[in-house]
Amino acid sequence: MRFTEIVRRDLRLALRQGSDSIMVVTFFVLTVVLFPFGIGPEANILERVAAGILMVTALLASMLSLDRLFQADYEDGSLELLALTPTPLEVVVTAKIVAHWLTTGLPLLIASPLLAVLLHMEPAGFATLLAAMALGTPTLSLIGAIGAALVLGARRGGVLLSLLILPLYIPVLIFAVGAIDTAIQGFDPQPQLLILAGILLAALPLCPWAGAAALRQALE
């Protein structure tokens, strides 16, 4: 199968099974809404922590959806068929990551400005929030794919996945929140955004490669 065919297949599966993307966004919205209850509704406090809450929650939402990246295909055997096609496994993994980002990262990106309004974020940060989410969430899907491939067939894979992946997510979190805070304080967020873009560009070739290696040993 070609790259676009795999992406189209995964998107079609996600759309027909329906609820997955909506559940991810619902989790994102609900968790963000918990914070005003937890830390109090004062606008100045929420304004200060809005960037951090949004990025951490988006990161968790993206992580929670990782198990469906390979798990279903692994269980029904279609992953082995995909591995047998002449298409390199790295391309298959990249296609599945792209489909994963389109069904989770993109909805999160679209939902984030609305939640930023709810958390009283300064309007100066909105453009940077979108840019940081656009550069950060693909990296989350890329890094997450390694973890999702590693825990295939493991006992208690879900908890294990978070232990493996969350430490590697931290750089994305630091620079995304840093960019938004810089923009809110009235400075140019370009350096942090460039670092985020750099992380994405480094992860783009390396993560599918590592993910494919992990899949190969899972399918042995």
Binding site: V151, A154, R155, R156, G157, L160, A214, A218, E220
Partner: peptide
Amino acid sequence: AFDDPTRGAKAAAI
């Protein structure tokens, strides 16, 4: 995390 120890060793190596 795996029933098969070689599987765990390979995953951990990656």
